[in-house]
Design a binder for these strands. Structure first.
Length: 424
DNA sequence: TCTGGGGTCCTAGGACCC
DNA sequence: TCTGGGGTCCTAGGACCC
């Protein structure tokens, strides 16, 4: 059996751990650049605020209803996530971290006396209360034979006191019969529309669809989902994270940009971010692409989207060199006369650093460069992110994203520890 | 005026090889 | 008149996840 452990309203829950005033009140957390609403407390959901709603459309509503509005604090959420995952690791040797707020947990180590439905549910309750006690984060847990069914159970758990199990054939069928296709893991907007058109509205109806039809229209991915709904394991637990295939960074500007220089500064920062990630995971990239875009939501403005890729002559994770390529790429695609909304970079063709292929005609002393970046990373780790950087990254960040209601880095910065005032 | 960011996987079609 | 069969690799586009 597999348990899906899912943190409830994760970003909001993280904020509530450090600000009890937020408990019991409607709270939303915004996306980067304070653009959209990406997390809602139960109270906010009850007010009818949809997932992904643009902030500017809801600003008045939020104010009228006294909703707390917070910028996203990914440093905090990342750290809290790690605490939750570490706690889970104490309950099972088989934990697949699926996302920042979700994990699949294998329960096969309980085989035997403690694997009856009743004891599995008890076990889930214990996991739940331990995570709550140790991290302050409430979670829901769904248990079933396959990942897709565990996700179904997880959804039911939210409305059933936190844990829910699908054990018998009857339980599974009864649940699937009232479970909307659009809520199935792996069935998104397009497939939902397609399935409804063919009169498939519930998970049970999908589970009973013909294999060949499913494969033809939903590809093998869809067929796997269907098999899993029927209780056949097709998607295994991935205990070792698969090697990364690409790494990228793109962010909207706080204000639209029209000049080359600030956009290049932003690009240099994103390249640095990616290069740090590449080095941390001991990868070098062999392909690099840069793209720019205006704001597609303003169709009256002149629109421009462009990207350009290069194959690097020598695969690299050296920030300085990558910034140089980035400069050339951006220069090639940048056009005057547009109000740009974003710039981005993506690296692919990742190769393990130890398989690094030296190039006879390389102009750089690679061992020296690797060493240099090692020191660069150590300094930033020891003295704080950004203590040393490339001049191309600039000083004035006029392009930086909006974060008007950002909370402190309570758990990752000595200067931002929570202080409690006990005067009254 | 104001609308996020980071990923993965699959398929079809075209180019190429012998 | 009649022109094979077995592959690989790459890309674009579309689907999905959180």
């Amino acid at each position: 059996m597999i348990a899906l452990v899912d943190c409830n309203n994760f970003y909001v829950s993280c904020e509530r751990v450090f600000n009890p005033k937020l408990v019991g009140c409607p709270v939303v957390v915004l996306s980067n650049n304070d653009g959209c609403i990406v997390a809602r407390s139960e109270e906010a959901k009850e007010l009818g605020i949809p997932m992904g709603a643009p902030l500017f459309q809801w600003k008045d509503f939020l104010q009228r209803n006294k909703v707390f509005v917070l910028s996203s604090n990914y440093t905090l959420y990342g750290d809290m996530s790690e605490r939750v995952m570490n706690t889970l690791a104490m309950f099972s040797p088989d934990v697949e971290i699926y996302s920042i707020d979700e994990a699949f947990v294998g329960l096969s180590h309980l085989a035997g006396i403690s694997s009856s439905p009743r004891s599995l549910l008890e076990y889930a309750k214990e996991i739940r209360s331990t995570i709550l006690k140790w991290t302050g984060i409430p979670v829901s847990i769904g248990i079933a034979q396959t990942k897709v069914l565990a996700k179904v159970a997880g959804k039911k758990a939210k409305k059933a006191g936190g844990v829910y199990g699908l054990f018998t054939k009857e339980e599974i069928e009864n649940t699937l019969a009232t479970f909307d296709v659009e809520d199935i893991w792996g069935i998104g907007r397009a497939y939902t529309k397609f399935l409804r058109k063919h009169n498939i509205n519930t998970a049970l109806e999908l589970a009973r669809a013909k294999d060949s039809w499913v494969k033809k229209n939903l590809t093998v991915v869809g067929l796997r989902i269907v098999e899993e709904l029927r209780g056949k394991k097709c998607i295994g637990l991935e205990l070792l994270p698969a090697p990364r295939k690409s790494v990228g960074s793109q962010k909207s500007f706080g204000e639209p940009q029209t000049e080359f220089a600030p956009m290049f500064n932003a690009l240099a920062c994103y390249i640095d971010e990616c290069a740090i990630k590449l080095r941390r995971e001991r990868n070098v990239a062999s392909v690099m692409g840069v793209y720019v875009a205006t704001n597609p939501f303003n169709p009256k403005e002149p629109q421009y989207f462009q990207s350009k890729f290069v194959r690097l002559p020598v695969p690299s994770n050296f920030t300085g060199e990558l910034i140089k390529y980035g400069y050339n790429l951006l220069r090639d695609i940048f056009r005057e006369g547009y109000r740009y909304k974003r710039v981005g970079v993506i690296f692919s063709g990742l190769v393990r650093e130890e398989k690094f292929q030296y190039n006879l005609f390389d102009g750089l002393d690679r061992p020296k460069v690797f060493k240099l970046m090692e020191v660069y990373d150590q300094l930033n780790k020891k003295y704080g992110k950004g203590i040393i950087k490339f001049s191309a990254q600039g000083v004035e960040r006029e392009w930086k994203m909006k974060q008007e209601n950002l909370t402190e880095h309570f758990t990752t910065s000595w200067n931002e520890l929570l202080t409690i005032n006990i005067d009254k």
